[in-house]
Amino acid sequence: MNVGQLYITRQLVGVTYCIISMALLAIGARATLDIHTSDAPRVVFAEESAGATQLALIIGNGHYPDAAEPLHQPINDASGLADAMSRHGFDVDMVEDATKADMANAIERLKSRIKPGSVVMLFFGGYGVQSGRESYMIPIDAMIWKESDVRHEGISIEAVLDVMKERGARAKLVVLDASRRNPYERRFRSYSHGLAPINAPINALILSSNTPGKVGDDSTNEHSVLVTELLNELDREVSAEGVFNKTRTAVSRVSNGEQIPSVSSSLVEDLGFSPSDSSITSSLPPAASRTSASLP
């Protein structure tokens, strides 16, 4: 082999080595990309799980100017339930004696904090009124003289459930202690007592203090009968649906059948309150710290 042939051979070897090296680098880069791509769904899922929260909006209204005397239990009920839900890992926003603006602002705060996968709870204690087969929470500054005022002055419970659904809440829990004789009923010619059945969206659980269309009087105890029994059941490690159903049974028993709460469920998964791990489900992380807003 002469010098020219040796030179050409070395050049070919060099070019071949470069081509092989580039091919190996490309294969390595493709493998790295494939690894990152396959990991991407797991990373997104982990981020979504980490962002899942447990939120509770708790409203207790007691001082209505149109009422003969204040309602003392809703404020105590809101405070007691707020403490209990905080122990269960919920981030609680508690509002007392809320005007319509206060309630609207609280709902907006809740809306802004709901993330896909959240478990969200609403509690309302005070006066509730039904109109047009829909139930409304009544603010303390409501000016109600006829039935149409209810729809204008009140806050629709179904509308709050719609907010939870639109924001992607995984599960919706509602507790209503508002089936009281309200100070507006004598102003209506056509009037239906109590609350209407709630149209629950999918994966919702609703507990109301009385059978639809029925009202009850408050006792002289610190807490209402409903919240007293609900707090008792929350101390037991049972499912959320079990808590609501056992509360219903307990209220019916202690009232000798005079007050029978209603429970409506469209749950498609098993949710459980567990004091031992302060979590509503084992798959959800601990919630953020509680916030509280007390209003004059």
Rank of each mutant, 00 (worst) to 15 (best):
S209G: 08
P197I: 03
E158I: 05
A169E: 02
M164R: 01
L161N: 02
N199H: 12
N182M: 08
H193W: 12
H193G: 12
E153N: 11
S179G: 09
K165I: 09
R187W: 10
L207V: 01
I155F: 05
R170A: 15
L195K: 04
K172L: 04
N182C: 13
K214N: 12
D177R: 03
P212L: 06
G168T: 13
G213I: 09
Y184D: 08
K165L: 12
A204S: 08
A200P: 02
N210E: 10
E158P: 04
D218K: 13
D162L: 09
S156K: 05
S208N: 06
S192K: 13
P183K: 06
G216Y: 12
G168I: 10
E158H: 07
K172A: 05
L173K: 00
A178H: 04
N199T: 08
S209M: 06
F188W: 14
H152A: 15
P212F: 06
M164T: 02
A178S: 12
N199M: 10
M164F: 06
A196I: 05
G194H: 08
G168Y: 09
R167L: 05
A171V: 06
D217G: 14
V163H: 01
R187V: 12
F188N: 07
A169T: 03
G194K: 05
S209Q: 08
D177V: 03
S192D: 15
L207T: 00
H193Q: 10
E185Q: 13
E158G: 11
S219W: 12
D218W: 10
A200S: 08
A204C: 02
P201A: 04
A169L: 02
L161E: 03
S208T: 12
A169I: 04
S208E: 07
S209C: 08
K214A: 15
S208P: 04
R189D: 11
S190R: 12
V160T: 04
A159W: 09
R186V: 11
D217Y: 12
V215D: 14
V163Y: 03
V175E: 00
S209T: 07
E185M: 10
E153R: 06
R180M: 14
R189Y: 15
V163D: 02
D218T: 14
K214E: 11
D162M: 09
P183V: 06
V160S: 02
I206K: 00
A200W: 01
D162F: 07
E153P: 08
G216H: 14
R181P: 09
R180Y: 13
N203S: 05
I157M: 05
P212I: 07
H152F: 10
N182P: 09
N203K: 01
